[in-house]
């Protein structure tokens, strides 16, 4: 494996770094209370929340650092932060 000239790289490799291992608290979405507004998807600093076909947020735990911003900002208070069991 050689080096790229000039320390340049194509996109894609950031995902090699699974930041989910940093997590202490885990966001859990309550599907009953979630209004599917999409705010959590927009504001996640990792960009690791997506919407499924029904508009429900799905967290990618390979990358979620557990910062809790989604839970703090959720207008419906549908996201709870729960301690990870190690």
């Amino acid at each position: 494996m050689g080096l790229n000239v000039g320390c340049a790289a194509r996109p894609g490799r950031a995902r090699d770094n699974k930041t989910g291992s940093w997590r202490v608290f885990r966001p859990t979405v309550d599907s009953e209370t979630c209004k599917k507004c999409g705010l959590c998807v927009l504001i996640c600093p990792e960009g690791c929340i997506r919407e499924d076909d029904d508009g429900m947020p799905v967290v990618d735990f390979e990358y979620c650092k557990g910062c809790g911003l989604c839970a703090e900002e959720c207008p419906a208070e549908a996201i709870a932060m729960e301690q990870e069991e190690k």
Binding site: L3, V5, G6, C7, A8, A9, R10, P11
Partner: peptide
């Protein structure tokens, strides 16, 4: 055809870039 130029190199890579 996006690329990132001028990234930083950790000690795992820096010396080889200078060698090159």
């Amino acid at each position: 055809d996006p690329i990132s130029m001028g990234m930083y190199a950790t000690p795992d890579y820096y010396m080889e870039f200078r060698y090159e």
